[in-house]
Design a binder for these strands. Structure first.
Length: 505
RNA sequence: GGCGCGUUGGUCAAGGGGUUAAGACGCCUCCCUUUCACGGAGGAAUCACGGGUUCGAAUCCCGUACGUGCUACCA
C-alpha cells in the first residue's frame, strides 16, 4: 500500500447535509495532504429509500464546494464500478466464503420470529436482546439445523440471510486516528446480517469487501459508525486481510444548536437555517434551500465546515481550500461533537466577502443580479459597485439591497427627506444643481468641497443637507459615502435624482 | 436497559501538571465615520460534580452526573 486512498460513501437517500459534506471534506483534505486519491463510492443498497436524482445531486454539491472526487461512478477509476448495486455479484461469494470457514451462517428466521425472540429474552430478564452468541442456538439457522435441512431450505428458495458468527470472550482493540485507542468486547457485538434476503449486502459486508477491493488505506466516517467498527475489524480478520486493514477514523457529530441530538435534516426548517449544501428536493419536505441558495460562497461554506471539528492550533480561522489541505492534521480533529452555530457560519461568509476582490466575487454574484433583473451593461461600473458595497454584505443576497440604487433610481420615502426640512435646504439643492451642472469636474474632492462650501455659504451645517442628499440618491440611510455613490452613478443621474425629489417638496 | 464516545464562557475553541485560562462568534460600552457597515479600544461571561495522586490539577487516575451515538434484512 504505497498510496493513500480514502473513500467517501454517502448514501444517496437524502440531500448532502452538513455532516455529510464535512465527512467528504475531511476525507478529501487528508487524501490531498498525503498526495492520495479521493474516491467516491455510492451506497445504494437500500432500494426502498433510494431517491431519484440523488446521485447527481451529490456530484453537484461536491463540485460547488470544489471537492470533486478523483474516482467515482461518474468519473471512473481503476476499481470501477463504484456504485454498490453494480458490485452485487461478488458479495454473495464473500459471504459464502465466510460460511465455509465457519465465521458466518445462514439464518432463516422471519422478522416475526426475531421479534418473538426479543420478547422472550426480555421476559427472561436479559439485558442483551441481540441475535448473537447467547441466542443463536435457539433460532432457525444453519447452526441449529442439520446440513441436509439447511441445503433443502436453500434449494427451496426459503428467504434467508447470512449472519456473521461472533464468538464471545474476545477483546477487539484498535487505534482510531481521532478517538485514540478503543477496546471493545465481542460479548456485546451481535451476529449482524451480512447478506440480506434480497442478495444485497448490508453496509458491514460492503464496506469491508469494497474497501479491500479498492485498496482503501484509510477509512473515515462519522462517529455513528464507531459501535460497528468491531464487526468490520473482525471481518478483515475472517477474510484473512488483517494486514491490509485500513486505518480508522471516526469524526465527531454535528449537533443541533439547541441541544439534544445530532443535526438532522428537519432541523433546518425548524430553526431557520439551511442544513443542505445545495437546494434539495426532499420527497418528504419538498424543495429545501441550501447554503448556496441562501447566498453563501463555497469558500466560506467549506471554511466554516472545516472549523466545525478541527483547527490548526493557531488563531487562524479563515482558510482557503488550499490552505486547509496544507494545514489539515487528522490528529487535531476533535473527539467531541460541536453544536452548529448559524451566526458563526454567516460570519465566515462575511469574512470571505470582505477578503475576496470584486473581480473574484463577480462569478458568484452575477446570477444574483441577473435574477433580480439588474441591467448591467458596464462591467467596470459593476466592479466599482461591488467594491464599494461588499464590506456591508453578509450574504450574497445582501448585495441586491445594498446595490440596487446604483442601477435604478430608488423609491424614496418622502418622509425621510422631509424630516427637519426647510425652505433653505430646498434652496441649497437648487443652487447645488446649478453649480454642479455648470462644472466640468466630477470627482470626489470636487463634489465634497463644493458641497460643503455651498452649505457653509448658506449657513447650513453640511450634515443637515448630507442626510437628505443620501436619501435622494439611495432611498435610505445606508450605503457607502454619498460622494462615492454620486461618482459611480454619474452626474446626470445624480442631478436627476435630486430634482425628482425636490420637485415634490 | 446494554455497550461505545464525549464534557473548558450562551456557541466554536487554545491549552496535555505551575498561564493574569488564548482567540473567534454573539451580546454590551466607547472611538472612527455627519448614514449603514468596515475598522479600532474595552467589558460581562468558562475549566460538570465528588474523590484521589501531587508541594501544586482545567491538565493524570477513579467514581458520579449529564450529553450523545449505536443497539434494523438503514446507512
Amino acid at each position: 500500500m504505497s498510496k493513500v486512498r480514502v473513500r467517501f460513501a454517502p448514501s444517496p437517500t437524502g440531500g448532502l447535509h452538513l455532516g455529510g459534506v464535512r465527512t467528504a471534506l475531511y476525507n478529501y483534505l487528508f487524501a490531498k495532504k498525503h498526495g492520495g486519491d479521493f474516491v467516491l463510492r455510492v451506497e445504494d443498497t437500500d432500494q426502498t429509500r433510494f431517491v431519484e436524482g440523488a446521485e447527481d445531486y451529490i456530484y453537484d454539491c461536491l463540485d460547488w464546494c470544489r471537492i470533486p472526487p478523483d474516482e467515482s461512478p461518474k468519473h471512473g477509476g481503476p476499481f470501477a464500478p463504484y456504485r454498490q448495486s453494480e458490485r452485487k455479484n461478488s458479495y454473495r461469494q464473500f459471504a459464502e466464503q465466510l460460511v465455509r470457514s465457519g465465521h458466518a451462517y445462514y439464518a432463516f428466521d422471519t422478522s416475526e420470529e426475531i421479534e418473538a425472540l426479543r420478547e422472550k429474552l426480555k421476559a427472561e430478564g436479559n439485558d442483551n436482546l441481540q441475535y448473537g452468541h447467547q441466542s443463536r442456538m435457539r433460532m432457525r439457522n444453519s447452526l441449529t439445523l442439520s446440513e441436509e435441512e439447511t441445503q433443502k431450505l436453500i434449494a427451496q428458495n426459503v428467504p434467508h440471510v447470512v449472519r456473521i458468527r461472533i464468538e464471545p470472550g474476545q477483546s477487539i482493540h484498535f487505534r482510531d486516528l481521532v478517538k485514540g485507542d478503543i477496546e471493545m468486547s465481542s460479548d456485546t457485538v451481535d451476529d449482524k446480517v451480512l447478506l440480506k434476503a434480497d442478495g444485497m449486502p448490508t453496509y458491514h459486508l460492503a464496506v469491508v469487501v469494497d474497501d479491500h477491493a479498492m485498496q482503501i488505506t484509510h477509512s473515515f466516517r462519522g462517529e455513528e459508525w464507531l459501535p460497528s467498527a468491531p464487526v468490520h475489524i473482525l471481518l478483515y480478520q475472517y477474510f484473512g486481510w488483517k494486514n491490509e486493514m485500513p486505518q480508522w477514523a471516526h469524526f465527531p457529530l454535528i449537533l443541533k444548536p439547541d441541544g439534544n441530538g445530532k443535526l438532522s435534516k428537519r432541523d433546518g426548517e425548524r430553526l431557520g437555517f439551511p442544513v443542505f449544501a445545495m437546494e434539495w428536493n426532499d420527497p418528504k419536505q419538498g424543495l429545501v434551500k441550501g447554503f448556496k441558495e441562501l447566498g453563501f460562497l463555497p469558500e466560506a461554506f467549506i471554511n466554516m465546515l472545516a472549523m466545525l471539528g478541527w483547527n490548526d492550533g493557531t488563531e487562524k480561522e479563515t482558510f482557503s481550500l488550499e490552505e486547509l489541505v496544507n494545514a489539515f492534521e487528522i490528529d487535531r480533529v476533535h473527539a467531541h461533537g460541536a453544536k452548529f452555530d448559524f451566526e458563526k457560519a454567516k460570519w465566515f461568509n462575511h469574512e470571505w466577502i470582505k477578503k475576496l476582490s470584486a473581480v473574484e466575487l463577480m462569478p458568484s454574484l452575477l446570477p444574483w443580479f441577473e435574477k433580480d433583473g439588474f441591467e448591467i451593461f458596464d462591467m467596470e461600473q459593476l466592479e466599482k459597485v461591488i467594491s464599494l458595497v461588499k464590506d456591508r454584505c453578509t450574504l450574497l443576497s445582501d448585495f441586491i439591497h445594498q446595490s440596487a440604487y446604483f442601477f435604478r433610481a430608488p423609491e424614496v420615502e418622502l418622509a425621510l427627506v422631509q424630516d427637519k426640512w426647510e425652505g433653505k435646504k430646498k434652496e441649497f439643492f437648487e443652487q447645488l444643481i446649478l453649480a454642479w451642472k455648470g462644472s466640468g469636474q466630477w470627482d470626489h474632492d470636487f463634489l465634497e468641497s463644493s458641497f460643503k462650501e455651498l452649505a457653509n455659504q448658506m449657513e447650513l451645517k453640511p450634515g443637515a443637507v448630507l442626510a437628505p442628499f443620501r436619501v435622494m440618491l439611495v432611498g435610505g440611510k445606508f450605503g457607502p459615502g454619498v460622494f462615492d455613490i454620486a461618482i459611480v452613478i454619474g452626474k446626470e443621474e445624480t442631478l436627476s435624482r435630486i430634482i425628482k425629489i425636490i420637485e415634490q417638496l
